[in-house]
Write a protein that binds this DNA or RNA. Sequence first.
DNA 1: CTCGGGTCTTGACGGTGTCAACATTGCTCC
DNA 2: GGAGCAATGTTGACACCGTCAAGACCCGAG
Lengths: 222, 222
Amino acid sequence: MTGSSYHHGRLREALVEEAIAAARERGPAGLGLRELARRVGVSHNAAYRHFADREDLVAEVAAHAMEQLVTAMRVRLGEVDEVAEAEPVLRARLRLAAVGRAYVEFALTEPGLFRVAFTADPEGAVAGAMLTEGPYLLLCQVLDEMVEVGFLAPQAREGADVTCWSLVHGFSVLNLDGPLAGAPPAARAAALEQLLLAVDRSYAASTGRGDTLPRQALRLSP
Amino acid sequence: MTGSSYHHGRLREALVEEAIAAARERGPAGLGLRELARRVGVSHNAAYRHFADREDLVAEVAAHAMEQLVTAMRVRLGEVDEVAEAEPVLRARLRLAAVGRAYVEFALTEPGLFRVAFTADPEGAVAGAMLTEGPYLLLCQVLDEMVEVGFLAPQAREGADVTCWSLVHGFSVLNLDGPLAGAPPAARAAALEQLLLAVDRSYAASTGRGDTLPRQALRLSP
DNA sequence: CTCGGGTCTTGACGGTGTCAACATTGCTCC
DNA sequence: GGAGCAATGTTGACACCGTCAAGACCCGAG
């Protein structure tokens, strides 16, 4: 099979694989139709049989990046469950911190994929999926859980999702492409810890609680 | 004067003006050397007598955008001072909310300029200026003020700057180019309000305070 | 009056995304 | 099993872009 080299036979998959690799290395700038075609060993324009245009390709990669992100978040959530089984409110608090930490962890570990995920057109299906089945949904579930266990006040629940999202997203962006790009990793880690403590404190206060989250509880991810 | 049309005489200024206008309309994508040259009525490549390369031009526009941003923040700060003169802690709280609100207000009002401001290379002078004399400095001053008046605990002060910055920056980015781009203005405003209340609550809790910021106090900017 | 240096222009090169026309292949249907 | 059609890949062209290299032009200093 595939003795003839005219028809690639697996071009779409090959292009997507190569695109993902390129995105991990060089971000959105690595996703050039011609360059990808070159790397796959096919002549320019061949990609147009499988993708409407460049945007279509980056949407594909963005979707993959989003999947990676949500599985990363799920992993961190699972780790929390192993630790705090029988204490509902502590569990909920740790779960919120975990999703937040996983978010920026992914952004800093896979900067290329992260950038591509938010390069895709906001009107497109990727952005929609991000809201209905992506990281946003996960965050909302955790926040609802915090309300159920009585840690987060219902009035404070409204808007808490975009607040938390804005927080971790802004942190990621500022540290990736923003003025904080050159910050030493230690400073970054410290800032992230303070950030997570700040939201926990805010939501604790929403139900009149004064206790602060034990700092080592946040350390369960390397 | 200027009878000869060979030498433009004011090319640099004209280019920057046109670049700013283009940035306001189309963001970073509007900053093409050839297109700008065309709009100014000069042939391509003329810009190279005044700018090393494209990055140099966008840095110029980014610097201008940053100035606009900080003056916008200063204006909102001034408005607070008129209202709450004799109550130091209320004043400090409102000032923090004001800088935050001004930040996202600018982002949503001048999306093109905002995008360009954070397009510039993070190693460059613009990013440096953003930290040493830009919005970050303003934010730090307000946070220090909160510590002085005893509203923000010194331990919580550490990292509070990047937390606040991340918050408003993330909110801006998500609403500009992210999945929240299509959100109705009313929802945006509500989310922003909750966001500002959340940080106030967090910092109030840092010193054991339970009172919440009166909501109308936040309404002083349209 | 010359001539030098700063300014602008013209032309070229390699890169990109995209459209149109053409070549090749494999699958289906008779 | 062969014919033909639709899917796939190729070649070529066009319009952009940033950038480098040479030339044309003009003003001011000597």
